[in-house]
C-alpha cells in the first residue's frame, strides 16, 4: 500500500469518526431523559463493529487480482 492510499484511508476513517463523534456528542449533551443515552450506546457499538468490519474487508481486497482481471477480462480461467 503506497503513502497516498494510506492518507486517503486515514481521511475517510477520520471523516467517519467525526460523524460518529458528532452524533454521540449531540445525543449525550442535548438529549433529554434516559432514552437518548440508550440510543447512543446502541449507535456507538454498532458503528464500532461496522467500521471494524469495513476495515477488515478492505485489508482483504486482492487489488492485484482485480487489476489483472480488469486489464484482461477475457482471460478468466
Amino acid at each position: 500500500m503506497n503513502i497516498s492510499s494510506l492518507i486517503l484511508i486515514i481521511l475517510i476513517v477520520g471523516a467517519f469518526l467525526w460523524y460518529i463523534f458528532s452524533i454521540v456528542y449531540h445525543f449525550v449533551r442535548f438529549g433529554i431523559g434516559k432514552e437518548p443515552k440508550i440510543i447512543v450506546l446502541v449507535f456507538f457499538i454498532g458503528s464500532f463493529l461496522l467500521l471494524a468490519t469495513t476495515i477488515i474487508f478492505f485489508t482483504q481486497i486482492d487489488w492485484k487480482a482485480i487489476s489483472e482481471f480488469l486489464l484482461n477480462p477475457f482471460q478468466l480461467k
Binding site: F16, I20, I23, L50, L51, T54, Q60, I61, D62, F69
Partner: peptide, 26 residues
Amino acid sequence: IFSSLYWFLATLIFLILWILVFYQIM
C-alpha cells in the same frame, strides 16, 4: 475475484446507512 471488494463496499454502504439512520433519529 471481486468478492472481497464486494463485501468491503457492502459493509461501507451499511455503515453509511447506519450513520444516516442515527442522524435522522438525532
